[in-house]
Amino acid sequence: MQTLAVAEYLNFRHAANALGVSQSSVSTRVKLLEQDLGILLFERLPRGVRLTEAGRHFVEQVAVGIDHLDHAVKTAGLLARGEQGHLRISAYALISNGFLAGLLTRYRKMHPDVDIDIAECRAGDAVKQVRDGHLDVAFVLGAPDIPDCHSKPIWTEQLMIALPATHPLADREGVTWADLSAETFLVRHNGTGPQLHDLILLRLAECWPRPLIQRFNVDRLTLISMVEQSYGLTLATETTSQIRFPGVVFRPILDKPGSVVFSAVWSPNNRAPALRDFLDLAKKTSR
């Protein structure tokens, strides 16, 4: 730093005053550096100093290195405080008036310099990616007990059935699982589809006739469109039901489970400050 100060002020006394040290200390440090390098950095003049050609080149390179170091230190500090970084999330849906969308909106306002990547995949695949470090947190349906991961229920939603507006059950205020036992259910291969598939089997295991479950590799909106076209019925959450779909009505399922829980899953080995702050906000918001 003393050498850069002398290069800036071209005067040992002025450089010493700027650094708050003695002139002799600055002069000694520069002289020792010149001896170590085996080159003359400054020409001593009656009034101040002048950089040699070698000195000018040396100072330029050192200044660049210090700028890089300063940037690295600042960036490391921002990352350590969670003010910068990356947050990789697996989410089942980002509907504008849903809990998760609201949580992300609040987080982004609090941490505008954190980049957020959002993916949608099957719960099992999402947990695997959390284990492998490819995802920071996955939101999954239910409250799974995963030995090598942490999980915490974050929010709940009413469980709904999506029906064609012309369906006989569409005029009811709500339905029971028994009402649905003879229906054809549509579920997705990805997203929450596998979990909803298992939920249908569990709830209707003792009913006869057994439900027919058809699985499709489509997105959520396409599945709802298939309901409108009377391919069958599909389970949905309260958040999804708030979107208006022509020709489709949503009715609450009145018997247990009347609601479903969504949990956050993350690796105990992931110490990223961005994840820590996001989970803290999710827990506070859920309360």
Rank of each mutant, 00 (worst) to 15 (best):
G247E: 09
F245S: 01
L141N: 09
R251C: 04
M160Q: 11
T166Y: 01
G232C: 14
T237C: 10
L135G: 08
T184V: 11
E173P: 12
E228K: 14
P252Q: 03
L199M: 15
G193A: 00
G174P: 10
V175Q: 08
C149A: 11
R215P: 08
D179E: 10
G133A: 02
V187P: 05
R215S: 15
I253N: 01
P211A: 06
M160S: 12
G193Y: 01
L199Y: 12
V175G: 09
H189Y: 06
L235H: 06
H189A: 01
E183Q: 15
N190G: 02
E228S: 15
R172T: 13
D219N: 13
S230H: 11
W155I: 00
F250C: 03
D219C: 03
Q242W: 00
L180P: 01
A236W: 08
E206A: 12
G193F: 01
D145W: 11
A165Q: 14
A170W: 06
W208C: 14
L233T: 11
F245T: 09
Q242S: 09
K128F: 13
A236N: 13
Q158H: 03
C149T: 07
T166M: 06
G191R: 00
R172I: 08
A205I: 08
Q195D: 09
G174M: 13
L135T: 08
L159N: 02
T192H: 00
